[in-house]
């Protein structure tokens, strides 16, 4: 009897190990810290946020083709400036014509990146990515915004990185927990997300009339709203 139980326990352990390994290879995830550094007249300041990327291997049952779905979890980077204002690097790129933010992150942290985002996420998760902080190229910067009045979401404006003094934006893998708490800065975030699809809508019927700032959503500040 004991021998049979032992065999069953061994089989169960092996199955758990196999499933665990399967999950590791099919849905690799990693966390990274994004840091924004700003040179101000009063000296350098910075802010950072820890985010997580999970890549999911998918198969299309109709075509048999394989794709990769990518989920980003976390919050925008907030930098407190000496003049009392706060600079935010939101979770969408300033240039909408290039890749999305998770792809830019993987391209930056994985020197072997070849557009297989699941493989790339696995290399980074296994510590085979770039070591130390790596600077983003300016054309791959996230969108930077500030509020004329932080209590008024419609006062959001796009900020030119050079004009505000951004010296660099870096990415670095980390085991730190994903950053939370942005609602303490932006108390209206959830309410605005329930009310409208953008902080500052264009009020035009057509998408072609909306500037990038008119497309900034509450979920660009916190991916976990409404989950």
């Amino acid at each position: 009897m004991m021998a049979r139980r032992g065999v069953l326990a061994t089989l169960a352990g092996a199955a758990a190990a196999l499933l665990g390994g399967c999950d590791w290879s099919l849905a690799p995830s990693f966390r990274f810290r994004m840091t924004v550094e700003v040179q101000t007249p009063q000296g350098p300041v910075s802010g950072s946020s820890v985010l997580e990327i999970q890549a999911n291997r998918q198969t299309d049952l109709m075509t048999g083709g394989n794709t990769v779905g990518v989920d980003l979890t976390g919050e925008a980077v907030a930098v407190d400036l000496p003049d009392g204002r706060t600079l935010f690097a939101v979770l969408r790129l300033a240039d909408q014509k290039i890749d999305d933010l998770p792809t830019v992150v993987m391209k930056t942290l994985d020197p072997q990146f070849d557009y297989d985002r699941a493989d790339s996420a696995m290399r980074i998760a296994r510590g085979r990515g770039a070591e130390g902080p790596v600077a983003l190229s300016p054309e791959a910067y996230p969108l930077l915004v500030m509020f004329a009045d932080i209590a008024d979401p419609t006062s959001v404006e796009r900020v030119d990185p050079a004009a505000i003094g951004v010296t660099r934006i870096t990415l670095e893998t980390t085991d730190d927990p994903v950053t939370t708490g942005i609602e303490r800065r932006l108390a209206w975030l959830e309410a605005v997300g329930r009310e409208r699809g953008a902080l500052k809508p264009s009020h035009s019927r057509y998408l072609k009339d909306a500037k990038l700032i008119n497309r900034v959503r509450a979920t660009d500040f916190n991916t976990e709203l409404f989950k």
Partner: peptide, 13 residues
């Protein structure tokens, strides 16, 4: 012309 989903009341939630 694509109609802006925001103009149709599609909020974040």
């Amino acid at each position: 012309n694509l109609i802006d989903p925001i103009s149709l009341g599609i909020d974040d939630e």
